[in-house]
């Protein structure tokens, strides 16, 4: 645990460097694909902070993504700022909302937290529709130059920050306390851990990064509308990614995001298979949740213990 060479971190950063190289030296189509992939990876890392680390299932996580999307869309479309300011605002508001919402909902355990997060997302969706400022259907569209590589490096930076943070949070004092909370919250408090403080901390991180990722998502799609910004299947996809990859780990989200993204948006989008991707991902979530709840990283951990330093 201490003084170990951080192979995992080096490995992940090497993968990220390779992605940057590929994006820089290949065509626009590849760059756009990588942007989308990394948006999903960023979302997966964001939900990993709360659901992966603490076991609190954030069904309504899409709320923070929507906050980020609207932050960027409003700034860029109404105030003509640069998208980077939109990302900064999205991250800030995502983090602040997570603190505010978490202060209330993180008091609820297990299924109550999950359901509270779900109804908040639905309430948020209805409230956005209520405001005419967000346009009919909560739709905001803006026109800015198409710069796939700039978008790529924005989301790339976000994912790198998430990887590094996940790694060090897991290894450090907070990580040990969080794992104790995940196992036995009351006993963690009896050992001196302040559960609320740690849960709020990781929830804030998760809101912040979901906000940033949501902002980039709006940037890459040149707009936002309420029914897709609050689409709960995004929450499911985020959960699916960390579940398939391995909850709470620093490798799992990138692994899971790659698998889910490629399945969902690339391999299964032939007209004949249309709709099939939802079935595949839904079925995969069921099977993995029931039979391998620790995901691919968990399988590797059990089957090849010698690979532990490389994957954790």
């Amino acid at each position: 645990m201490k003084g170990r060479t951080p192979f995992t971190l080096y490995g992940l950063l090497a993968v990220m460097a390779a992605l940057a190289a590929v994006a820089s030296f290949s065509g626009v189509a590849t760059t756009v694909l990588l942007v989308n992939l990394l948006v999903f990876a960023a979302l997966a890392y964001s939900i990993n902070f709360i659901t992966g680390m603490t076991g609190y299932v954030s069904f309504g996580h899409v709320v923070f993504m929507a906050i980020g999307s609207y932050s960027l869309a409003v700034l860029v479309s109404t105030y003509s700022t640069s998208p980077f300011e939109g990302i900064a605002l999205g991250a800030l508001l995502g983090g602040l909302f997570a603190l505010g919402i978490g202060a209330v909902t993180l008091r609820f355990r297990g299924v109550y937290f999950a359901i509270a997060s779900l109804v908040l997302a639905l309430a948020g969706y209805n409230l956005v529709l209520q405001f005419p400022q967000f346009g009919p259907g909560g739709e905001l569209i803006f026109y800015i130059p198409f710069q796939p590589l700039t978008v790529f490096f924005a989301i790339w930076g976000i994912v790198v920050a998430e990887i590094v943070l996940t790694f060090f949070v897991n290894r450090g004092k907070v990580g040990l306390g969080i794992r104790a909370i995940k196992d036995e919250e009351d006993a963690a408090a009896a050992a001196g851990v302040n559960p609320m403080k740690l849960k709020l901390y990781v929830y804030m991180l998760s809101g912040l990064f979901a906000g940033a990722a949501g902002a980039v998502f709006a940037w890459s799609t040149f707009g936002v509308n309420a029914s897709s910004a609050f689409d709960l299947t995004f929450s499911l996809q985020m959960l699916a990614m960390i579940l398939i990859g391995g909850m709470g780990t620093s490798t799992g989200p990138l692994l899971g995001a790659s698998i889910v993204y490629l399945l969902y948006y690339e391999l299964l989008t032939y007209p004949r298979l249309q709709g099939g991707q939802f079935l595949v991902v839904g079925a995969a979530v069921i099977v993995i949740a029931l039979f391998v709840p620790d995901g691919i990283v968990g399988i590797i951990r059990r089957k090849y213990p010698s690979l532990k330093p490389v994957i954790e």
Binding site: K2, G172, K173
Partner: peptide, 11 residues
Amino acid sequence: ALYGRRLRSVG
């Protein structure tokens, strides 16, 4: 030990 004694790090 970490939280009860307010230690700074895991080691």
